[in-house]
Design a protein around this nucleic acid. Structure first.
Lengths: 363, 363
DNA sequence: CGTTCTTATTGAAAGGTTTCAATCGCTGAA
DNA sequence: TTCAGCGATTGAAACCTTTCAATAAGAACG
């Protein structure tokens, strides 16, 4: 053990430091908080004593006295989804500047865990909570906000003036994906995703349908392949169902509700000896790190993840200002085209391209 | 008359609850901590008052008085690496049972951030710290442990009796990978990874070399392709260098120091029109979720990630016991064979397979 | 020398919780 | 009637920090 300090049985307090330095405890506190008010000699004497004793400020006591804490918390929906860790990174960037440390909690898609985390955080009197909720309509949210804890919803919105939120326009994202596929000459497309109770899944589909209609295409030619969840396994399953559709009616492209589903679909297509985008073009959603790293790099709708986090942090800081008006910030997604739609054998392989699109080609 | 309106300007304290319920504050505390000691009527009266006022225990005050906290922290090296989020999940499982909440901090490979996080955590008097350090030999670690904070190193070890640690036998992992490749008939293999200062990179290579020698193969035929970091991009670069080696000397398989590198390599190989495992068989390391989800599912050395986290949490709880002896727990990795080595056209495509391996085939 | 002004330091109070010895109100026994 | 015994309740102290009015010690000035 490297125990340089005089063993005290407990960690040293300002009082111990004061005694060691031969000053009053008020002076020690001044050294910590208003060093300019203390004469240089005294200050260095106190600093020496602190170093000798291995003094560490007791944050609980500080917080109790001050009433404010130096922590912000992000209760994330799924820590193993790279999307959310990127959002967290954005938050951290914003917090860093404010000398605030970020407390990440993982609700792991469980409402019970989310509630437990929120309870703990309220007891800790954190400065603010950022939350991507399991269910945006949950009453727990009202409870937390009702207690006066600054709260910002992240990547979810709620038609409710009482909350700040940051989200991305999922309908626009759906439009972008479909416009891109139509541009590349696809006239039969599958939308892969579910369950429908997820707002994201619904909104992206709505955008897709709107764009499809705007292109003057037949509604029936935009097939929906529902999934139970947005996972790789479900994507694989959807791939099998897709392959089962008779060639004459089979979509030449798939727009997946997120990248995990898209990766699963990609895996199934390649694994069964077909090619991407030759046999099926694929568009994912989120543009996670692994989308670009896939065997066939994935075209995907990118959300400004870090920006999302950074903005959420700023909003939560603003919550404490007097007369604060809650804001719903909505970001615009952006399509990132890669080989899974623009690859060497892009575009539908049969049938004339009668649309106004650029048609097949390397792009 | 009891004032049920929660608007008090500050959040209600036990004192407020006591006043509202017409009891002393000691009784309120008893209701919270030893409900059996309070008569049923009184208890329900107090509980009612707490609900009416929206009372939330102030954790700072509690902690100040008690000296113990209910939080455990995991300072992780890289929150965007699925490996660490899985470890975190294991920790959380163990913490859940102990009514302790887990505080995740991301050092993001920065020593400065790591230090800042550790400082904050010490001030918070967390119950214990789990740490995957940027540098296992850093003096900061001694400092923290010297202050008496329970500390366990995760996925890193240190030849030092003063710390508990949990790690995985990287040398064995290296052996497993090479034995698998030799079994499948490969006689020229590349080890892809770096920088060498990472203990993991060194140990895995050492194991690989040992297994290679044990198989009676020529040391020179185990090529090392160094990388700057363990990322997808570096893996792609290594793939290009691999392709540049004259066919006569070119390795027929690659063992990558982690899955990110392996995925990059896979992408480069597939992207340039060659096949896996036909032209190059690939073994990764970590068996992250995306390894199985790759276009060609990746053979990988799996580490018991959740187990790692769970055990680390148990060790940190044990730290507070008197006469605690620090333990270094080492887990055994396990090879998970998938298509990237056992696929339809597995095994080296040219030259007779003179080894005792199962040879090419579907496996 | 007395006064005022400045600067450095001090001591006590406050913040919300838990603990523990002390007290209260009863019941049953002597 | 008094007293011990018992369970329920109480009040004050302690945890550590920050704040702020008060004090002390000089310095500048008349």
């Amino acid at each position: 053990m490297v125990d340089t300090s005089p063993s005290l049985g407990r960690s040293p307090s300002v009082k111990d430091v004061a005694a060691a330095a031969g000053v009053s405890l008020g002076t020690v506190s001044n050294v910590l908080n208003r060093p300019a008010r203390v004469s240089p000699e005294t200050r260095s004497r106190v600093e020496r004593a602190m170093a000798d004793l291995g003094f560490v400020r007791n944050e609980s006591a500080r917080q109790l006295r001050m009433g404010t804490s130096h922590t912000l918390a992000y209760v994330m929906l799924d820590a193993s989804n790279p999307f959310f860790t990127d959002v967290a990174q954005g938050i951290e960037l914003a917090a860093e500047g404010a000398d605030i440390s970020l407390f990440l909690c993982n609700s792991n898609n469980s409402a019970a865990r989310e509630e437990s985390h929120l309870g703990h955080l309220m007891q800790q009197r954190v400065q603010g909570i950022l939350l991507t909720p399991v269910d945006p309509e949950s009453a727990t949210i009202d409870l937390v906000a009702g207690r006066g804890v600054p709260l910002v919803l992240v990547d979810r919105k709620r038609d409710d003036e009482r909350y700040c939120s940051v989200a991305v326009d999922d309908e626009l994202g759906g439009r972008l994906a479909i416009e891109h596929l139509v541009d590349r000459g696809h006239r039969r497309v599958a939308y892969v995703g579910g369950p429908e109770k997820l707002g994201q899944v619904r909104d992206r589909l709505a955008g897709a349908r709107a764009a499809w209609a705007d292109a003057g295409l037949l509604a029936a030619h935009l097939t929906v392949l529902p999934t139970q969840a947005l996972t790789v396994g479900e994507g694989r399953g959807a791939g099998e169902r897709l392959a089962g559709i008779p060639a004459s009616r089979r979509p030449t492209a798939a727009f997946c509700a997120n990248d995990l589903v898209a990766l699963g679909l990609l895996q199934q297509v390649i694994g069964s000896g077909r090619s991407v985008p030759g046999d099926v073009a694929i568009v994912g959603y989120d543009d996670i790190y692994f989308a670009a790293a896939a065997a066939v790099p994935l075209t995907s709708v990118r959300q400004p993840r870090q920006e999302l986090g950074r903005t959420a942090a700023e909003l939560v800081f603003a919550e404490t200002e007097p007369d604060h008006l809650h804001r719903q910030v909505v970001f615009q997604p952006e399509l990132v085209a890669r080989a899974s739609t623009t690859g060497p054998s892009s575009g539908p392989s049969k049938g004339p391209s009668k649309g106004p699109g650029k048609g097949p080609g390397k792009g």
